[in-house]
């Protein structure tokens, strides 16, 4: 069962003695439903990773960094989790995110999706879906609404979209939301 896109899984392990890019490793690429599950069942659950690690699943050819030409004008829908959600919800939310990507769940706006990243951090884990053009409001909002519904987030919980250009020039906590759903 071929996927619409080939996807690359990346793993980041924070070793401070090395440059950021040297800590980023390409794990494997998948382009069928069957290969996706083979990969998923072979790797550690996100909740079992140590703090400072990331997984990223990106379309083949796009590097999981905002500097990539297909990311730099884009941004991300960011889901910030409370510490206790690592044990209760993190793996479910990340798997749901992956299924949204490989299943092309955002209709014609799936073309706008670049990938997704999960950051495992002691102060609170984060999951984000990256899209390629922060100015394409209709597409970004459609993706955000579908994504929020697929994650099963309550209407009261607001998630925000931040342009990478803003995230890159300000500290993460100060980057403002361009859109919210």
């Amino acid at each position: 069962h071929p996927l619409q896109n080939r996807w690359a899984l990346w793993f980041f392990k924070n070793e401070r003695s090395r440059a950021w890019q040297d800590n980023l490793h390409l794990v494997t690429k998948v382009d069928t439903v069957e290969d996706f599950w083979a990969m998923y069942s072979h790797i550690q659950l996100a909740s079992k990773l140590s703090s400072g690690c990331d997984y990223a699943l990106f379309k083949d050819g796009i590097q999981p960094m905002w500097e990539d030409s297909r990311n730099k004008r884009g941004g991300r829908w960011l889901v910030s989790l409370a510490k206790q959600q690592r044990h209760s919800e993190l793996d479910r939310l990340w798997l749901e995110t992956l299924l949204c990507l490989i299943g092309e769940s955002f209709e014609e706006h799936s073309r706008e999706v670049c990938g997704a990243v999960i950051n495992i951090r002691a102060k609170g884990d984060k999951i984000a879906v990256w899209t390629r053009e922060a100015e394409s409001q209709a597409g970004v909002l459609h993706i955000g609404r579908v994504y929020k519904e697929r994650l099963g987030l309550s209407a009261k919980m607001v998630i925000g979209y931040q342009a990478h250009a803003d995230t890159a020039t300000k500290s993460h906590s100060l980057a403002k939301n361009k859109f919210v759903v």
Binding site: E34, F36, L99, G103, E104, S105
Partner: peptide, 20 residues
């Protein structure tokens, strides 16, 4: 055509043994 798969379809494959 465009290959879209809903979550239930994808989940059906999770524990399926690989065909040899």
């Amino acid at each position: 055509g465009k290959k879209q798969y809903d979550r239930e379809f994808l989940l059906d494959f999770q524990f399926m043994p690989a065909c040899i």
